[in-house]
């Protein structure tokens, strides 16, 4: 039983608490229609955070997700793709994410650069390339299919929510049912022990970064659909938010807890809290403060739990 409790991420408790709080103070918050609006808003971040889960569980970090989102947005919205089938564009966007992830992965595993600095570096490069590509003036020709991905609904359920759920299941399978996930958690907990067990530590880390790039691009696609146009610096705040969602989800540097479900709960908690704050009239500064406090609290709780026993 204690093992089960231990596996529950901090986000589970947080989310329960927030729901109870909302039920008493802002009951309309828990209505189906509002929850669906929240879901649509959470989906792009949720996708990016799923990707971030792989790298953070693998004791690494991807700070280039924001720049990846921005680049995907600029590519998709660029006027030069007018008339091309959207499937090519989607393929191109996701391919860009994979290439970025691959670059990060190679730099981190082969050249052994610190993931923090490497992904900062690639983020700068991607940002520059985005500016050069768009000439500083983002286009606005986002294909309808992509807009549908971001804004459309099937019945009451937002399409983006379904995409998030689908890829959440994919991530869960990768992390909890395939050898890859076992490798990620093992290497994240102790890379040296993983090596001595015969686990291909470098290849695992490389794949984690590729997945992070792919999920960031996917999140970028959905976000572009939601926004409906090209925009400079789209997704800049997703770097921090995706990390927060993963920390809340409990998948910090191996640890064994958390994973896809944890991160999805973490994303939900973060989006709920930020919206609740809006309802209570708390502005950007207050949100930043709460967000920081939440990261610190989750990280400290996690660390204490890890030390105990």
């Amino acid at each position: 039983m204690s093992a089960v409790l231990r596996m529950l991420p901090p986000a589970f408790w947080g989310l329960s608490l927030v729901c109870v709080f909302a039920a008493f103070t802002q009951p309309q918050f828990l209505s189906l229609s509002f929850l669906m609006i929240l879901l649509r808003q959470a989906a792009p971040l949720g996708l990016v955070a799923l990707g971030q889960t792989f790298v953070i569980a693998n004791r690494s970090l991807d700070l280039s997700v924001g720049a990846t989102i921005a680049l995907v947005n600029l590519i998709v919205a660029h006027a030069m793709w007018k008339g091309y089938p959207p499937s090519i564009l989607i393929f191109l966007a996701l391919g860009t994410g994979v290439v970025i992830g691959l670059t990060n992965g190679v730099l981190v595993t082969v050249l052994r650069g610190s993931a923090v600095v490497v992904t900062l570096g690639t983020a700068a490069i991607i940002t520059g390339l985005g500016f050069l590509y768009s000439g500083g003036a983002p286009g606005s020709s986002v294909p309808e299919v992509i807009k549908w991905l971001g804004r459309g609904r099937i019945g009451v359920v937002p399409v983006s929510g379904l995409v998030w759920l689908t890829f959440g299941i994919v991530a869960w399978v990768l992390l909890r049912r395939l050898a890859l996930g076992r490798y990620i958690f093992a290497a994240g907990d102790n890379p040296s022990a993983a090596t001595y067990s015969g686990i291909p530590v470098n290849r695992t880390l490389l794949v984690s970064h590729v997945l992070s790039g792919f999920f960031a691009a996917l999140g970028g696609l959905v976000l572009t659909g939601l926004v409906g146009t090209g925009a400079l610096n789209l997704g800049a705040d997703y770097v921090l938010s995706s990390i927060v969602a993963v920390i809340l989800g409990g998948a910090v540097f191996g640890g064994g807890a958390g994973g896809a479900v944890g991160t999805m709960l973490g994303t939900a908690l973060l989006v709920m809290v930020l919206n609740l704050l809006t309802v209570f009239g708390v502005d950007e500064p207050g949100k930043l403060i709460v967000q920081g406090l939440v990261i610190a609290a989750a990280a400290i709780l996690y660390q204490q739990g890890r030390r105990g026993g």
């Binding site: 890859l180 067990s197 686990i199 794949v207």
Partner: peptide, 13 residues
């Protein structure tokens, strides 16, 4: 871990 390490990256555990 050692038994798993013999499996391909994307194999079902």
């Amino acid at each position: 871990s050692a038994e798993l390490a013999r499996r391909p990256l994307l194999s079902w555990v």
